[in-house]
């Protein structure tokens, strides 16, 4: 390679390295802010959430925790990350994929009693896809 080209390669590599370091530092500084939601452990053990401040919490809907008011849209369920769990109260319509044992992300506020009052519930889909027959044999519901 002739000297001019070599110089260009060095310059480009230097630029790329500089940009990568800058991006790494920014992302590292923003670590927690880049997460879409807090886990129940972070809410209960680490007390990362302030009361009455808008935030998102995510995890699995605990089995047999879902209850529904018969004559209103009030619902409650527990979200767990298999260490801690938090009770969520929600008034509204749930997305189609919402079910016990699958993931959700809820947006709302932590109340003083320690439960979470959600204003929005989003279903989190996992990366597994399979035909119904296969799911049946694997005892998925």
């Amino acid at each position: 390679m002739n000297p001019i080209r070599k110089q260009r390669v060095y310059a480009l590599v230097a630029i790329l390295l500089g940009v990568s370091v800058a991006i790494f530092l920014v992302l590292n500084g923003l670590k927690q802010n880049l997460n879409l939601f807090y886990t129940p452990t972070q809410v209960i053990k680490e007390n990362l959430l302030e009361v009455n401040k808008l935030a998102r919490v995510g995890g699995m809907v605990k089995d047999n925790s879902f209850t529904e008011h018969t004559n209103s849209l009030m619902k409650s369920f527990e979200i767990t990350d298999f260490n801690e769990s938090i009770v969520v109260v929600y008034k509204g319509i749930l997305p189609d994929l919402f079910s016990e044992g699958s993931g959700v992300v809820v947006q709302g506020m932590l109340t003083e009693e320690g439960s979470f009052e959600a204003s929005e519930v989003l279903a989190k889909h996992d990366e597994n896809y399979m035909p119904p027959e296969v799911a049946k044999t694997l005892k998925y519901k």
């Binding site: 997460n35 995510g58 989190k124 996992d126 990366e127 597994n128 896809y129 035909p131």
Partner: peptide, 24 residues
């Protein structure tokens, strides 16, 4: 993988078997 996201992780990659049946 780095952050908690609503988007699911990859269904198939070069390094592991896909989380899908072959007919999909």
């Amino acid at each position: 993988d780095w952050w908690q996201t609503l988007h699911q992780s990859s269904t198939f990659s070069l390094s592991s078997s896909p989380s899908m049946t072959a007919d999909m």
